[in-house]
Nucleic acid binder design. Structure first.
Lengths: 222, 222
DNA sequence: CGTGTCTTTGAGGCAACTCAACACTCGTGG
DNA sequence: CCACGAGTGTTGAGTTGCCTCAAAGACACG
């Protein structure tokens, strides 16, 4: 029962076999789970906490491509190696499954296969939304849409959607949205001064005027 | 036999059933295949030509998220509607499959399922690469990496990798890379002046110094 | 040989970045 | 208990580079 609770986000109860190959683990804040280029031995699913996925350029520039929340997967690429580094933003727990076993189970259980397929499609959708945000939105618009997405995802996870909790740092937000930390900070300030949000502290954002915030974002989160 | 040729890029010969539900069609340049928000009735695969996928903001800003080449898929999202508009860049041919039938076949044929899953993972990988390009590269770097990616994809399609043919307009490139057409043009000029490329005409790029171009791109295409 | 579309080039402004200083929190240790 | 330092976030000043606006060149098509 406890095991099921641990990986509840993962699967239908029918697939007990998954549990037999599952390896639970946990990460302290800033701890690295896998590094870009490392052989892809396991597929992971996050059960609690938050991860950041990123790639680095030779000169140190970083692009965070996603923040993972419980239920999200990692290591679904079809290559021999991980294509991104995964690090814990906050204390996190996850379940790992050896790829070989996973692939065997996927063949046996179409529903597992369908589930991973679906999660990949959702990740693709999010990446495409992110392309629009990175390519065509102004800094304030980026921050506004970022907040709305976080709010929506919190609701999906059964948490309150309004005071949005930012577990990540300004640096993380900057590297996710293609900005500098200063511009991130100034954009928050701008939204606060305009009365669209309140900032009780740096990691807590109260959405005061959701309608206006949505208008600023230009696109509603989906 | 001819039908197989048409959709050769699509599937192993074993799945003749696919052919029975397949609907071939073709598009003239600039013709729209599907529009964002429209009910998702078919899954498509491109057999020849090139498509652009994009989403628009209310104020007219456009973000192209991908250029599709033969063998690429479209409409794999898991929602009720298409989430992007698809337009032909040049004359294109494609195969369509009703989603309901497709899903039925996917359950019957794990290999088909696996194939679509794989194509989705590849698309996700490309989208993530694109996030890095959009978020962290300077204009010249964006153009350099764009050229290298196009070159690599041409090779994958059994075509010469060096004179890179740009079927799309500068506007398309700008909307794909998050730039303006002027900046795209100036970046091409900059690369030309530095002797890394030659521009016989606006839609033909000869890579003169691939090593240097890769260095400028910061990341090698994969 | 016009006409329209696409591309390139130039000039100037503004917004985001760079550099810098300061405020704040939170441990640690004197 | 407070001093100190590291890490994080905010704000200010100046600069750079991309975008905006403008015009001219290149090319296809009728």
């Amino acid at each position: 029962m406890r095991k099921q609770a641990i990986c509840a986000a993962l699967e239908d109860h029918e697939l007990d076999e998954l549990q037999s190959i599952m390896i639970a683990s946990s990460l302290a804040p800033h701890q690295t789970l896998v590094e870009e280029g490392e052989p892809r031995r396991k597929v992971f699913t996050l059960t609690s906490g938050m991860l950041r996925l990123y790639t680095m350029l030779p000169d140190g520039r970083r692009q965070i491509t996603a923040f993972l929340l419980p239920g999200d997967y990692l290591g679904l690429g079809d290559e021999e190696t991980y294509d991104e580094t995964a690090e814990a933003v906050i204390e996190s727990k996850l379940c790992g499954f050896p790829v070989a076993e996973m692939e065997r189970l996927m063949e046996l259980h179409p529903r597992l296969h369908a589930r991973l397929y679906q999660m990949t499609r959702i990740a693709l959708r999010q990446a495409r939304d992110s392309q629009m945000i990175l390519g065509r939105l102004a800094p304030v618009e980026k921050i506004a849409s970022f907040l709305l997405v976080l709010s929506a995802r919190a609701v999906e996870h059964g948490q309150p959607g309004n005071p949005v909790h930012l577990a990540m740092t300004r640096m993380d937000i900057a590297d996710y949205l293609g900005l500098t930390i200063e511009t991130v900070s100034r954009s928050f300030t701008k939204l606060r001064v305009q009365g669209l949000i309140r900032l009780p502290d740096a990691h807590q954002v109260e959405i005061v005027d959701r309608r206006a915030l949505t208008a600023v974002a230009g696109i509603e989160p989906r």
